[in-house]
Simulated scan of single mutants.
Amino acid sequence: MKVVVIGGTGLIGSKVVTLLGEHGHEAVAAAPSTGVDTLTGEGLAEVLEGARVVVDVSNSPSFEDRAVLEFFRTSTGNLLKAEAEAGVTHHVALSVVGTERLQESGYFRAKQAQEELIAGSGTPYSIVHATQFFEFVPAIAAEATDGDTVRLSPAKIQPVASDDVAAAVARTAAGAPLNGLVEIAGPDAYPLDELIREALAARNDPRTVVTDPHARYFGTELGENTLLPGPDALVGEVAFADWAASRK
């Protein structure tokens, strides 16, 4: 089965391409560097020829509110149109656990718009909601930093290994369309402030983490469970502590 992976040269996409290939599928990495641009439509018709499944794990190069909304609306619209013309029978997209609860954030409004386009397209689809990747922990700290202080909410977060996310996306792509959502999260939940405090200490980072229940997470104030998956979520195998230790 031919599967085209949009964003197939990135962190998750490259892993998905490898996993699908190991299971006998013809997995094609599509990205601007391979001549496929979903914003302009360049190369889409050619790469989708003969494809049964499209996996979209691409992300916006800019997180500015207007730019990120334009990216997801345009790229997703172009991709869905090209898929319909090519006869693609399953669209798989990677999104974020809690997207619908994080609508104060321009980024998550854009992801919600993407999901709505997919659900309304008429193409059978599956959306994989992942919690934040372990690799994203430094970006969470950076976004919350003011001088030497990192101000964070004690709301719970259940981060996940990128390997586990890629495995969930690949399994979803190889299966029947869900016409709905599946969630993937790591095995352990942490208060966000404690997670970042431990991560900074492990790297001998001198910044101080201050607990603030009203601290904003990428523009949104968090409730205790805003970032957590539901009870039916898939659970990854890799623990954050083990992953962090392996990175030293």
Rank of each mutant, 00 (worst) to 15 (best):
residue 207 R to L: 02
residue 130 A to Q: 01
residue 85 E to A: 14
residue 190 Y to D: 03
residue 178 L to S: 08
residue 72 F to T: 00
residue 190 Y to W: 10
residue 172 T to F: 10
residue 39 L to H: 05
residue 206 P to W: 09
residue 179 N to L: 12
residue 237 E to V: 04
residue 21 G to K: 06
residue 238 V to L: 07
residue 8 G to Q: 01
residue 247 R to H: 01
residue 64 E to H: 07
residue 152 L to Q: 01
residue 62 S to G: 15
residue 152 L to E: 00
residue 70 E to Y: 11
residue 32 P to F: 02
residue 215 A to N: 13
residue 87 G to C: 09
residue 64 E to M: 10
residue 168 A to Y: 04
residue 55 V to T: 10
residue 33 S to E: 11
residue 119 A to V: 10
residue 73 R to W: 04
residue 70 E to S: 14
residue 183 E to Y: 05
residue 102 L to S: 07
residue 94 L to V: 08
residue 211 T to A: 09
residue 165 V to S: 01
residue 147 G to Y: 15
residue 41 G to Q: 09
residue 121 S to M: 04
residue 120 G to C: 09
residue 105 S to P: 06
residue 208 T to Y: 04
residue 207 R to I: 02
residue 24 G to C: 13
residue 87 G to F: 05
residue 121 S to N: 04
residue 111 K to I: 08
residue 112 Q to P: 09
residue 98 G to V: 02
residue 38 T to W: 08
residue 92 V to H: 01
residue 165 V to G: 00
residue 97 V to A: 06
residue 184 I to M: 05
residue 144 A to S: 14
residue 215 A to K: 13
residue 87 G to D: 11
residue 205 D to W: 02
residue 170 A to L: 13
residue 26 E to Q: 15
residue 193 D to Y: 09
residue 110 A to T: 07
residue 213 P to H: 13
residue 205 D to Y: 04
residue 190 Y to H: 11
residue 193 D to R: 08
residue 14 S to L: 04
residue 29 A to V: 05
residue 49 E to A: 09
residue 212 D to W: 03
residue 196 I to L: 04
residue 201 A to G: 11
residue 201 A to M: 05
residue 114 Q to R: 14
residue 112 Q to S: 14
residue 102 L to V: 14
residue 214 H to L: 09
residue 232 D to E: 12
residue 24 G to S: 09
residue 65 D to P: 06
residue 105 S to G: 07
residue 146 D to V: 15
residue 236 G to C: 11
residue 56 D to V: 05
residue 128 V to N: 02
residue 155 A to E: 03
residue 34 T to W: 12
residue 63 F to W: 12
residue 28 V to C: 07
residue 88 V to R: 00
residue 176 A to T: 10
residue 130 A to G: 02
residue 57 V to T: 04
residue 228 L to S: 05
residue 228 L to G: 02
residue 230 G to I: 05
residue 204 N to T: 07
residue 89 T to K: 09
residue 209 V to I: 08
residue 204 N to G: 10
residue 247 R to T: 00
residue 179 N to D: 15
residue 11 L to Q: 14
residue 176 A to R: 13
residue 123 T to N: 08
residue 190 Y to L: 03
residue 179 N to P: 07
residue 48 L to H: 08
residue 18 T to L: 11
residue 58 S to P: 03
residue 200 L to G: 01
residue 237 E to D: 10
residue 248 K to V: 05
residue 226 T to N: 12
residue 156 K to T: 06
residue 201 A to R: 14
residue 22 E to G: 15
residue 185 A to D: 01
residue 160 V to T: 00
